[in-house]
Simulated scan of single mutants.
Amino acid sequence: MALKVFDLQCEAHHIFEGWFSSHEDYDSQQERGLLTCPLCGNGKISKMLSAPRLNVSHLKKEKQPAPLKQAPKMEATANLNDKELAKIQAAVMQQLRVYVKQTEDVGKQFTAEARRIHYGEAKERPIRGNATPEQRQALQEEGIEVMPIPDFLDENQLQ
């Protein structure tokens, strides 16, 4: 499946990529309020003008990015131009994708498996899967830390 990669920007001027199956998919997700900024959670997202991109990742051998060095201090970012900031944001997004790739996808069994790990009934390991907002809330009330991961960080969701 060919993917459309759009440069998106939230109301707080964070720039990030969005991967969609089509322009219509983007429009549909935008209309349903499903798009949020991965950096601040802002839901007011706009598509930026960008040059066309080709998804040719399948043509080159996968290479692992180097781990990120210490993040720049917040006061230093005020002096960054848009290109430098976009470069840092892209590096952060790539590192997040690496972290997601290192987790085990337990699918719809996420809630049960998270509890089993928390209570020592299963081997401790990083997992990801599907949970409703209510299930995530219940886990957090039990002291089990969880966080939603946007689909665009999971390369398996994009295939």
Rank of each mutant, 00 (worst) to 15 (best):
E62I: 11
L96M: 14
G120S: 05
E113S: 08
A86C: 12
G107Y: 05
C10L: 05
G129M: 05
L59N: 07
D154Y: 02
G120D: 02
K108S: 13
D105W: 05
L80R: 05
E75W: 15
R32T: 08
R32C: 12
P148I: 02
I144H: 00
L153K: 01
N42I: 03
Q159Y: 10
H14I: 02
E113D: 14
A112K: 10
K69A: 11
E104Y: 07
E141R: 10
L8E: 01
K60P: 03
A90V: 02
E124N: 10
A86P: 00
K61T: 09
E84H: 05
P150S: 12
T103I: 01
R115T: 10
E145N: 11
V106R: 04
C40W: 02
A138D: 09
G120I: 04
L35S: 01
H13W: 09
E145S: 15
G129N: 00
V56D: 08
Y119K: 11
P38R: 03
A138K: 09
Q159K: 14
Q9A: 10
N42P: 02
E145C: 08
Q94C: 07
N79S: 15
R116S: 13
N81G: 10
Q9S: 11
H58Y: 11
H118A: 14
Q89A: 08
Q159F: 09
H23Q: 11
K60H: 13
H14Y: 04
H23Y: 12
V5R: 12
S28M: 08
D105Q: 06
A86L: 13
R115Q: 13
A78Y: 15
F6V: 05
F110M: 06
D82N: 14
V146F: 01
A138S: 13
H118I: 00
P126E: 01
Q64P: 07
I15D: 00
Q157A: 11
V5F: 13
E84L: 15
Q89F: 07
L59P: 06
R128M: 04
D25I: 00
T36D: 09
G43D: 07
Q137C: 09
L68P: 08
D151Y: 14
A76L: 14
D82V: 13
A91D: 06
I149T: 01
T103P: 00
F152W: 05
L85E: 06
G107K: 05
Y119L: 12
G43P: 06
K47I: 09
S22Y: 08
D154N: 12
K4P: 00
Y119T: 09
P72V: 04
Q64S: 14
E24I: 08
Q135F: 06
K4T: 05
W19S: 09
N55D: 15
G33F: 02
L139G: 03
K69G: 13
L139F: 06
P52V: 01
S21N: 11
I15V: 15
R116I: 04
P150C: 01
D82H: 14
H13T: 11
H118R: 08
